[in-house]
Design a protein around this nucleic acid. Structure first.
Length: 830
DNA sequence: AGCACGCCGACT
DNA sequence: GTCGGCGTGCTC
């Protein structure tokens, strides 16, 4: 045991993670005042570089002063208990190593931005300055501007001075002591505060209250307020309700006099107070619903899962669409929560907005936190802090919810585990939430349940080879039949002139029938906009993006051409940019055009469209869903959004265009994806009682995969796929790492990619390194792309291989021959 | 990734 | 000379 005196002599140093794309930790010196309260996982504010003040997280505490430099001081300590658990810090390191990025990048996406602190350097006029003669004309202007404001930041000054780099001027002003520069640091997160009033406790006594009411006889406004209050709060019957008070807004809404409230407060009859409330409490007037009773097949699945968890850490639940997986989840969650452990329930973003949240809230109430990107950052902070404090033992959330500070997980459910949105593409870390979930569960000795109607080939393989447990649900809940899927050969229909626009007559007949029956129809076209390209009839030129190597999509809404890669948009031209001809034609079908043509064909029908363009905001999305649910819409046209997680009662027909494009997409996962998407969209038809109908238009009805979709033959698809994967050495037999090399100059990009591929092949062997190849889109945002693909078999020492790859990538980035190159590494891509 | 710092050419 | 552009290297 060290003596206290001795301990005090030791300086504490903190190695911190800075949330930016820089490798390594940085060492700061901890001021004595924080030396005992600082802990691993606490946030600190530090000066990083000459200008920036950032929030960082303590990863390590020690007493070794750095040898080569003088450590700067920690400026401020934000938490006296870990906001990030030490386990998470380990996990962040693991993720950064596995996905080949920096820990800073991991921290940056892990922490909601409300927990990072913003810093702005502010410039203020120095009131003690008294040598105006020293200033240049421009400097004098700036000083005058500064005098008008309290202070301005660099950006604002630059705008005023109309120069790009205002730094020189400010530097000169600082030297002349004309201005003061200071840092403004503030916490972005602000808790929600509710203003409340209550009767002072004196009047909780009946006799005093009566006297008061008598006294107020002649003050009708005040009496009105008081009577309103008493109507809401039965003060005499339950003083504890008075203690909780009433929201001030409830009184003002009741149109009582505002000034009367003030007078009552002034006279000590009412008192005002504030409470900090959770942002979720407001929708807490939920009706507690009992746990649903399980059907016999659900009960069976539940006990099989429990059994499977005895032996296996991860279990795959393959339950066909509509088999009622949610009820099984609910029972599992309840069980784990009762045992005192935490539960994380992951869902793809699109599925989270809908009915399921309402349903779970009814069962779990305020134990449940919701972590969603459509929510404000304040709400995310609330959930994060709620997990730390123990308020939320159960969180339902999207991909990034795997970063929440759980320390005692019992179960992670990954619903729709095959969904690609679990994989983050940009920016780094390019992690897969399902795979990270498995790692977290392993570290916390928790169980993982992967649920899907169409499991990913990888997960099903893991189940087949006994790495995962496996449970099946083959019965549809309420014994609804699976939809009847019919293929329409559009090639034949075209020959027989039985196609109008993109609609075969067969399809139109069905749609008409459905409209007459007042049942709803969904149209699935996985392309937004009006037409994917426009073409000149005279010279055949297709309008393309200036910055990317893609055609521009015509959007009727807004009358503009848009690039779906870089976001560039321009007004719809009247003439061809190549030859000046006015004969511009829209080509191909997007959701907007489908919608338009349907409206012409069925003028009386109410038609809605659901795609990225119509659901930009949280409310727009919900409004659309409500409209469809209430039956106010006859036809819904949409992209894959309509396929995912939405349960509409009255949909009895689903029409699919262009299935072929999905099936033949050049990617080794295209068959799997097509099966998943088409099965999901088909599942939207006929939820309860009746059998739904699905029509798929295709140029080639004899494709095997279409037969598998019709027969819901997942195992058949799996067998075909797994063989292909083995033959061509794709996952799950190998791990893929994709490296994308980008440069404004195509030959440089190509040369760099070639050099990299050669270096990698030298050590990893030629079989393991493919490319470089031009990707489907050669140029994005004026950068030419080349891709190198690395296939590593699972038996290989992955860690060593990655370390080598990382080294080569770093060499390339720093290479003097390839200045301006950027290299993106994507582990487990796709 | 920013961003300061330094070197270099253009212009008052 | 001063101003702005661009390339380079560092951040505890």
């Amino acid at each position: 045991m060290q003596s206290l005196e001795f301990q005090e002599e030791i300086t504490v140093f903190a190695d911190v993670i800075i949330p930016v794309a820089i490798p390594n930790l940085y060492t700061y010196r901890v001021p004595r005042e924080y030396a005992t309260s600082i802990c691993v996982g606490a946030r600190v504010i530090v000066q990083f570089g000459k200008t920036k003040v950032v929030t960082a997280v303590v990863a390590k505490l020690h007493n070794k002063p750095p040898e080569k430099y003088q450590a700067k001081y920690v400026l401020e300590l934000l938490d006296d208990a870990p906001l990030v658990t030490p386990q998470q810090i380990d996990l962040f390191h693991w993720i950064s190593e596995y996905y080949m990025c920096t820990v800073g990048e991991v921290l940056n996406v892990a922490l909601p931005s409300g927990l990072k602190i913003s810093s702005l350097s502010k410039v203020q006029f120095n009131p003690e300055f008294s040598y105006p003669d020293l200033l240049t004309e421009r400097e004098r202007e700036i000083i005058e501007e500064l005098k008008k404001h309290q202070s301005l930041n660099y950006d604002e000054l630059a705008r005023f001075a109309e120069v790009k780099n205002v730094y020189h001027i400010i530097k000169s002003l600082i030297q002349k002591k004309a201005v003061i520069v200071f840092e403004e640091v503030r916490e972005k997160y602000s808790p929600k505060i509710l203003k409340k009033v209550r009767l002072t406790s004196f009047y909780e006594d009946e006799s005093y209250l009566k006297i008061l009411l008598g006294e107020l006889e002649k003050k009708p406004q005040q009496l009105d307020v008081l009577l309103h209050y008493l109507r809401y709060v039965p003060v005499l019957r339950s003083p504890e309700l008075n203690n909780k008070g009433l929201e001030k807004s409830a009184l003002t809404k009741a149109e009582v006099s505002d000034s009367a409230i003030k007078t009552l407060v002034k006279n000590g009859i009412l008192e005002q107070f504030e409470v900090v409330v959770s942002r979720f409490e407001e929708d807490l007037d939920f009706v507690e619903a009992p746990t649903p009773t399980l059907s016999s097949s659900q009960e069976k699945a539940f006990s099989e899962i429990m059994n499977s968890f005895q032996e296996k850490d991860t279990t795959l639940l393959h339950g066909i669409t509509g088999s009622g997986k949610t009820e099984v989840y609910i029972k599992l969650i309840e069980q784990v929560l009762e045992s005192g452990s935490q539960v994380l329930y992951l869902l793809p973003e699109i599925a989270l907005t809908t009915q399921i949240v309402v349903r779970l809230r009814k069962v779990f109430g305020d134990k449940m936190g919701i972590y969603h990107s459509r929510f404000s950052d304040n709400e995310r902070v609330e959930v994060w802090k709620g997990v730390v404090s123990g308020k939320f033992s159960f969180v339902i959330g999207v991909r990034s919810a795997v970063f929440l500070p759980f320390d005692n997980l019992g179960l992670i459910i990954v619903d729709e585990e095959h969904e690609t949105s679990y994989k983050q593409f940009d920016p780094a870390p390019r992690y897969h939430a399902r795979d990270v979930a498995v790692v977290i569960a392993h570290r916390q000795k928790a169980k993982v349940l992967l649920g899907s109607a169409t499991p990913s080939i990888e997960s099903f393989y893991n189940a087949q080879t006994n790495r995962y447990g496996f449970v099946e649900m083959t019965e549809r809940f309420g014994s609804t039949q699976l939809p009847d899927i019919e293929l329409i050969d559009v090639k034949v229909a075209r020959k027989q002139k039985m196609v109008k626009g993109d609609f075969s007559d067969l399809m139109l007949d069905r749609v008409r029938l459905n409209l007459e029956k007042k049942e709803q129809t969904i149209f699935f076209q996985n392309r937004r906009g009006y037409s994917p390209y426009i073409q000149c009839e005279d010279c055949d030129t297709i309008a393309s993006c200036n910055n990317c190597d893609v055609s521009l999509t015509y959007h009727y809404n807004g009358q503009e051409l848009r690039c779906h890669y870089c976001g560039h948009h321009e007004p719809m031209p009247r003439t061809c940019q190549a030859c000046g001809s006015v004969k511009l034609r829209t080509r191909g079908y997007g959701t907007e055009k489908i919608e338009e043509e349907l409206q012409i064909l069925f003028p009386s029908a109410k038609i809605a469209r659901m795609d990225l363009d119509t659901t930009r905001t949280k409310t727009a999305f919900q409004t659309l869903i409500n409209e469809v649910e209430s039956g106010g819409v006859d036809m819904l046209v949409g992209t894959q959004m309509v396929a995912k997680g939405l349960d509409f009662e009255k949909v009895s027909l689903v029409c699919v265009f262009d299935a072929d494009r999905m099936i033949h997409f050049p990617d080794f996962r295209s068959a799997e994806r097509a099966f998943q998407l088409l099965t999901q969209v088909a599942g939207r038809a006929g939820r309860r009682g009746t059998q739904g109908k699905v029509l798929i238009q295709t140029n080639n009805p004899s494709q095997k995969i279409l037969k598998q979709i019709i027969e819901n033959d997942y195992v058949g698809l799996y067998k075909d796929e797994i063989k292909e994967r083995e033959d061509f050495q794709y996952p799950p037999f190998t791990r893929l790492i994709q490296i994308t090399v980008k440069h404004i100059d195509q030959p440089i990009a190509e040369k760099a990619a070639e050099e990299l591929a050669n270096k990698l092949a030298e050590k990893l062997s030629k079989q393991r390194v493919l490319g470089p190849e031009k990707p489907l889109v050669e140029r994005i945002r004026n950068q030419f792309l080349f891709e190198v693909m690395i296939k590593l078999e699972k038996t290989l020492n992955l860690k060593a291989a990655k370390a080598f790859i990382a080294e080569e990538v770093m060499n390339l980035r720093l290479s003097k021959d390839f200045k301006g190159i950027s290299v993106v590494v994507d582990v487990d891509c796709g």
